[in-house]
Nucleic acid binder design. Sequence first.
RNA 1: CCGGAGGUGGCAGAGCAGUCAAUCGCUCCAGACUGUAAAUCUGGCGGGGUAACCCUACGAAGGUGCGAAUCCUUCCCUCCGGA
Length: 398
Amino acid sequence: MKKFKVLHKEGKARVGRLETSHGIVETPRFNPVGTQASVKAILPKDLKEIGVEMILSNTYHLMLRPGVEVIKKLGGLHKFMNWDRPIMTDSGGFQVFSLGGALEAGSSKVVSGKKITQDFPRPRLNQITDEGVIFQSHLDGSKYTLSPEIAMKLQYDLGADLIVAFDDHEYKNDYEHLKLSIEQTQRWALRSVDSLKKLKSLSAGRQGQQLMYGVVHGGTNKELRVRSAQFTDKHFEAIALGGIYGTKTEMYEMIDYVLAQVSDEKPRHLLGIGEIEDLFNGVERGIDLFDCVAPTRRARNGSLYICPKSGGRSKNGFTLSITLSKFRGDKTPVDRRCSCYTCLNFSKAYLRHLYLSKEILYHNLATIHNLYFIENLMRQIREAIKVNQFNKLKSSWL
RNA sequence: CCGGAGGUGGCAGAGCAGUCAAUCGCUCCAGACUGUAAAUCUGGCGGGGUAACCCUACGAAGGUGCGAAUCCUUCCCUCCGGA
């Protein structure tokens, strides 16, 4: 039986149904990130109340601390963190980039509206060989190895519902580098597939139900993106888009090129992307799933989502900054059109006070708002697609 | 009234003749944040100018120096102790 089914389409935008061992979810969907087996500053029960179905956690971080063995012995990741809904884990491949070249370059990510003009220096915290990646833990400097086989075993042991093939991550945008990188990703992809197959053959239980994403790379090079997409579609039942993009415009172009190459009946996950503008543009092009730290991190850093009628624009990222002095005595909620617990009960003045006072409650209330806001937006998007109103909804935002 | 210690930018507190428009911190102001080393990071914080630079400034007023927030005199004010 197919794990993913497209239920309705409006243009390329689609509503789908994804079945996992921990429940069925409807797409398009945004998945909050809980890197270290915790979506920062919010209780699992509040995530549920908000309507969050699926979260993303991270193999690399969990292998370092507390150790995947520990989690396995305690009954798996779901039980460990008390989350009985779907969990996706990233393979750790991204950390090759984020803790390597990008870290050294002092550059965190990719899509910023700025073009990548400089090469990233060579990775420092990791050493990439054909076998895999040797990391030094960012926690204590001790050495670890990640390879396709190890990454699969770890994700298998964690018991994630959706997992990601171990991939390389380009850190330069020139053709030769990109080409070598996607070839590395492809070799690792095949080993990931084999490895998971072996693991599944060893046990026929629930863990055998894991759905694995292959990751499409290729920077902003159309030819390589297309090649990588075709490869991924050939070998995987689920498509993830990763890598570097440069500008937003280029990212959207790459999404178009990639999705034209992959089966309609496979879920597509746009890794690590999730600003509001990107959600609309991604869905419009046929993306089904997103994950991003934006709502949770922004929340903690004082950046709270607001809808267009409350002043949200692409230019301000559909956010307001709670630190602004004009909110000192503002008794209105963050967004008067929002129905989250925070907006129903607290003023901007209070949130601003909590933020400036570094009160821990701020993080909770802000996170509740931002996650509710995005969840609510995605729900509206799904409902709109079902009645062919997505374009209309989009144009009321962008 | 006597004795002692002080008065520096929003706060607090360095500086004690030139490298001082004035350390550091906090507050404050603005910005960033996209598969989380992020409750983080960046910038600004006397006025003017794109800038070289100019003006006003370290309680007040004088004074000594080429030159003073830094030394001297007087005054004003604050704090501590004693009448």
